Simulated assay, not measured.
Amino acid sequence: MKDADSEVEKMPAVVYRIQEMMSHYNLNTNSMAKELGYTATSKLYGIMGGSAPSFGTLTDILDKWPEVSSDWLVLGRGPMLRSAGGAATPAAPAPKAPTALSRSVVNNGGVLVVTVDKDGEDNVEMVPVAAQAGYATQHNEAVFVQDLPRYRLPGFERGKFRAFEVAGDSMEPTLNHRDIVVCSLVDNWRLLVPDDMYVVVTDESVMLKRIRVRIEDRNGEVILHSDNPHRRPYPLDCADITELWRVRGYISTYLPSTPDVTVERLWEVIEALGFDRAEVRRHLDENAPNSTPIS
């Protein structure tokens, strides 16, 4: 995974000024592209990912928002806005890049927008069920990500983590509806750990599934598995995946009651049926799901 701070240092300063301007006008990449009359958002996505804007793009922005100071946008001099008479109007100073409210890092060929605290440390953004439909289409929009609840969680301080609220029963009995999974970003899909749980983000949905085989080809398919035996596995085109997050922990209000008593009672029944406990354990170990990649 690339170091986020190094990405921040390499990003042109004009990109931060465009982000500040977008925040001032309450714009995201899609809405700004529409305002500028662009039929595609790829140009602005490239800028948000750290590419310096072309002269034509800067001219388009200044034509659309003439109150924005060209000295500020291009050179970083003076305030952002001009007054009605052409003089500069004081505006809030732009934050320094390392301590910006949001920043973009490279994610497996895409863009990941993250938020940071006042010390420049990454937050853990929480994506509740109600926000997941929007997250599927706006996960790389700075304005959208900034509006998500943000936390600092013990044990999740080093690295990029994001939390997702569980919806539905597809991962029961492992996880329950309204549990919260804390995930780390998978920026190299070849390092996917087989048989682990992942939050799979596409343009249409946010899904919590188990992936049993590494993704070797973005043009291939991946099979998504549920822990609920009543839910069948189904294939997904890898090209449809926009983000992949590995589950590293979870928060739950569900507390199982006396699980040891239940397990011990099960062993009593097994022995009462005449089976040897050690033999049953050996059989379970030998028939456990294979976690190695399938060639």
Score class of each variant (00 low, 15 high):
20 E>L: 02
20 E>T: 02
20 E>I: 00
20 E>V: 00
21 M>I: 04
21 M>R: 01
22 M>A: 02
23 S>V: 05
24 H>W: 11
25 Y>G: 00
25 Y>H: 06
28 N>V: 05
28 N>H: 14
29 T>L: 12
32 M>S: 08
34 K>G: 09
36 L>F: 11
38 Y>H: 15
38 Y>A: 07
38 Y>N: 08
38 Y>K: 11
39 T>L: 15
40 A>P: 00
42 S>N: 13
42 S>V: 15
42 S>F: 12
43 K>A: 11
43 K>G: 06
44 L>A: 08
44 L>G: 08
45 Y>V: 12
46 G>V: 06
47 I>D: 04
47 I>F: 03
48 M>W: 09
49 G>K: 09
50 G>I: 14
52 A>R: 14
52 A>I: 06
52 A>P: 11
56 G>S: 13
57 T>G: 03
57 T>W: 08
58 L>R: 03
58 L>H: 05
59 T>K: 13
60 D>S: 10
60 D>L: 02
60 D>G: 05
61 I>C: 03
65 W>M: 14
65 W>R: 09
67 E>Y: 02
68 V>Q: 09
68 V>A: 03
70 S>P: 11
73 L>S: 04
74 V>G: 01
75 L>N: 05
75 L>V: 00
75 L>S: 00
75 L>M: 14
76 G>F: 03
76 G>Y: 00
78 G>A: 14
78 G>C: 08
78 G>H: 07
80 M>E: 08
80 M>Q: 07
81 L>G: 05
83 S>H: 10
83 S>K: 15
84 A>K: 14
84 A>Q: 15
84 A>Y: 11
85 G>I: 07
85 G>Y: 01
85 G>P: 02
88 A>M: 08
89 T>V: 15
90 P>L: 12
91 A>M: 13
91 A>F: 06
92 A>Q: 12
92 A>Y: 06
92 A>G: 09
94 A>S: 11
95 P>N: 07
95 P>C: 06
96 K>W: 10
96 K>S: 12
97 A>E: 13
98 P>G: 06
99 T>C: 04
100 A>N: 11
101 L>W: 06
102 S>F: 03
103 R>F: 12
104 S>K: 01
104 S>M: 10
105 V>Q: 07
105 V>Y: 08
105 V>F: 12
105 V>R: 03
106 V>H: 11
107 N>L: 13
107 N>K: 09
109 G>P: 09
110 G>Y: 05
112 L>Q: 10
114 V>K: 04
114 V>N: 04
115 T>M: 07
117 D>E: 14
118 K>Y: 10
119 D>G: 13
122 D>T: 14
123 N>E: 12
124 V>I: 14
124 V>D: 07
124 V>T: 15
125 E>K: 00
125 E>Y: 02
126 M>N: 10
126 M>K: 01
127 V>D: 08
127 V>F: 07
127 V>R: 06
128 P>F: 08
129 V>G: 04
131 A>I: 01
131 A>G: 01
131 A>Y: 07
132 Q>F: 04
133 A>M: 10
135 Y>S: 07
136 A>E: 10
136 A>K: 01
137 T>I: 14
138 Q>H: 12
138 Q>P: 00
139 H>Y: 06
140 N>M: 10
141 E>S: 13
142 A>V: 01
144 F>D: 04
